[in-house]
Design a protein around this nucleic acid. Structure first.
Length: 431
RNA sequence: GACCCUGUCGUCUAGCCUGGUCUAGGACAAGAGCUUUUCAAGCUCUCGACACGGGUUCAAAUCCCGUCAGGGUCACCA
């Protein structure tokens, strides 16, 4: 059975690159009906933090990558020291005392040889052990080094495929030697290309947000982020860009993963997010938006009209690039006083519309039924009576009601604002 | 510097394995237009790439070699 693992170190948040590595591991496990194992690499006691473990677990859950087993390296120290002792007793390792440090380190003897590793994505990679130094297995303080703990864990938890970032290629020969010395079977390797920032080089905080949780907070949908990440080094074929995870599981294959490093493009992520947002269930989206509105004091947590809110969400849904956009774009529905964008006022409301606004209010008040169609009819007949173009009045009215030049169709806005608020907001501009 | 990985539109990619159907396809971005009630969406169009040089071959994006460029790794960090 296929057993893969994702092995983050809890010294920081789960970042985009880690999320992508997790994605390919999880996807492969699901595609092969295998197991996806999580291993927390917390051997560095100083830098590892419990809150980072929680953060990483939360981010993985948010992305939808459920794990079948979880291990903590900090709980496995006895296994590492036992196997290091074994290598010591077989003469494959030796101890060394450094003058600056207390205690003795256990060091692995690297013998000159050629090491060949087959990579599922890149094919055969050959290394010469001559360029390698002897490897520290157990540090003077008794903690294992990364490469040693990694090999011991992968081998003893029966990992069949090691899927990880490109940056680990140069660790692979060191690890292969350890597998050999320990008498363990070598797993299959697959090294994923790295994700780079727009300015070249690794994706870093300077080029934009790097943590998965940043994207959650900014208002990206997990499905969209996963879809985008998947596209970064794999293609479902047939010129498809959008693919849900279920279908991806059916089509995914490690050997078709690209070899080339990909640049993270926020614009395309935005497009993918918009595509998902358009098709997202409005009820779910509403659930997501409610806490944001509560935080802004736009609604009261325990007392608001959910159906009304749902209608507003539907009104804006196809326009959103980020979930959070709703809060900014629909603010006028929740505020007593509209905050006027000065540039909007300058553009469309820089002259006196007293007469037009008064006539419009009168017509609205006289409506038998205050519905979208009737509102539009009354507006159209008014502009034709005044002998002006519809848009000559639509823009001023929108700015007066919403404070913005952009937004949903005006008649829907009026309908959901209601007669009273429409009246009040237009009156402000009647002299 | 040494070792390793990688080079198709600005970006993500299809094509490469199994050479001809590739005057290289799609998507994002950019530009233009349609629609129109602004924005978003949608639709139409435009711009735009096989890193370079040598081979092999009747034929090369595709196979081989070299050059160059980019990236990664060289810790008692992970």
């Amino acid at each position: 059975m296929v057993r893969v693992r994702f092995a983050p170190s809890p010294t920081g948040n789960l970042h985009i690159g880690g999320g992508r590595t997790a994605l390919f591991n999880w996807l492969y496990a699901r595609a092969k009906q295998g197991k996806f194992i999580l291993r927390i690499e917390d051997t560095d006691k100083l830098r590892s933090k419990k809150e980072f473990v929680d953060e990483i677990l939360n981010s993985l859950s948010w992305l939808g990558f459920n794990w079948d087993e979880i291990y903590y390296q900090s709980q496995r120290f006895s296994i590492y020291s036992e196997l290091a002792q074994k290598l010591l007793s077989e003469g494959k390792a030796y101890t060394e005392k450094s003058p600056e440090r207390e205690g003795e380190a256990i060091i692995f003897r690297v013998l000159p040889q050629k090491i060949k590793v087959n990579d599922l994505i890149r094919g055969e990679i050959e290394f010469n052990a001559q360029v390698l130094k002897d490897q520290v297995l157990i540090k003077s303080d008794g903690t294992p080094t990364y490469n040693f703990a990694c090999v011991v864990d992968d081998a003893t938890t029966d990992i069949t495929h090691v899927i990880r970032g490109d940056d680990h290629i140069s660790n692979t020969p060191k690890q292969a030697l350890l597998y050999q010395a320990l008498g363990f079977k070598l797993p299959a390797f697959a090294h994923l290309p790295l994700i780079m920032g727009m300015e070249g080089g690794r994706l870093s905080k300077r080029t934009g947000a790097t943590a998965i949780s940043d994207y959650r907070i900014m208002g990206y949908l997990p499905q969209a982020l996963v879809n985008y990440l998947l596209l970064l080094s794999w293609s479902p074929g047939e010129n498809r860009e959008l693919i849900d995870i279920g279908e991806a599981i059916k089509l995914f294959d490690l050997t078709s993963v690209n070899k080339t490093a990909a640049t993270f493009d926020l614009k395309k992520l935005g497009w993918v997010n918009n595509q998902y947002l358009k098709n997202e269930d409005s009820e779910k989206l509403t659930d997501q938006i409610i806490p944001m509105l509560v935080e802004k004091n736009f609604i009261n947590r325990d007392n608001f009209d959910r159906n009304y809110l749902l209608s507003l969400v539907k009104l804006f849904q196809s326009r959103l690039n980020l979930v959070n956009d709703f809060v900014d774009w629909a603010d006028f529905f929740f505020m007593e006083e509209v905050s006027l964008d000065p540039r909007a006022q300058e553009k469309y409301l820089n002259q006196d519309f007293s007469r037009e606004f008064s006539l419009f209010i009168e017509r609205l008040k006289g409506l038998k039924s205050f519905d979208i169609v009737s509102i539009e009819e009354s507006f159209r007949s008014l502009v034709s009576q005044l002998g002006i173009e519809a848009k000559a009045l639509i823009h001023p009215v929108r700015v007066a009601l919403t404070g913005k030049t952009i937004g949903p169709g005006l008649f829907e806005v009026i309908y959901y604002l209601g007669l009273e608020r429409t009246n009040k907001r237009l009156k402000r501009f009647i002299k």
